[in-house]
Amino acid sequence: MTTTVDVDQTAPGRDPAAKPSAPAPRAARRHRLNFTPYAMLAPATILFLIFMAAPIVYTLILSLQKTEVQGLGLGSGARKTVFAGFSNYAAAFSDSDFLASAGRVGLYGLILVPAMLVLALVFALLLDSKRTRLAGFSRVVIFLPYAVPAVISSLLWGFLYLPSVSPFVDLTTALNLPSPDVLSQGSVIFAIANIALWGGVGFNMVVMYTALKAIPTDLYEAARLDGASEIRVALAIKIPIILPSLIMTAIFSLIATLQVFAEPTTLKPLTNSISSTYTPLMKVYRDAFIRNDVNSASATSIIIAVTIFALSFAFLRVVQRRAFQEENS
């Protein structure tokens, strides 16, 4: 099926006319066509090299260097860039600010990712149930926060958290209850996780719902006629089938979690509980632009990227297998 279009069965450079079966004019066209896919890929490749590959290589180089100040550090020759080996990495791993931020993000991920996936899955299954009413309305409304940028949603929730403005504080005051300060040191992590949950649950729900809708009804209609409850059908049939979607959403959520930056940065002016190194990426920003220590910022970036890569490796395998399955079918 693919052979009719896959124009280049031979390696480029080899004379296509050498194929005995190909008529001459067609062969000539084939030869010209060999360049077409490269031309079509050229814009993407160039942009990829400049804005993805080069920055990565540059970060790697910077992370292995350090700036040495000689003498009093005055004059143009006083600062010298020298090879530093892995000292920036070693420094990062012994930096208590970095370790604390990594720990916070780990905890944040443990709170957020399971909550987000479970909630999204429950919503998606309820949407998929024929017995749910007003599902169309709920689906649109729950998806809506995805349209709100993280900075704006942090801003909205930030005001809702702020005791002087918060309706919840009004409510607890009216009921003579103690009003919890959600922006305090202990609970601000939940406050941030809630913002991300609010923004992300709808998207994940839609992804899972799309997968659920693709399941042929007859796969579980028989089970239902046999008396299986909706919950049993969901656990035994629907969830296993959409497992790849669940893995994908889990990995995407993890990637987003480890890079959390906009939410805490936006909440920062509203509370003293968020330091300038609250998350690893905030520390990278501070090192690079406030302390002008690009080298340790680069090392920290690489550590974050490698962590994300390691955690995402499972995802790559799932996607790869699926993508090539689809191609070969």
């Binding site: 066509l33 896919p37 910077l62 994300i308």
Partner: peptide, 27 residues
């Protein structure tokens, strides 16, 4: 199309999906 380097290009792309854009911002 099938062409030389297609598989490699696609693999690099998939790896690119995993590179967090936020980490690229500083370099």
């Amino acid at each position: 199309y099938s062409f030389k380097g297609k598989q490699a290009t696609f693999m690099v792309l998939l790896a690119g999906v995993l590179v967090p854009g936020v980490i690229l911002a500083i370099p």
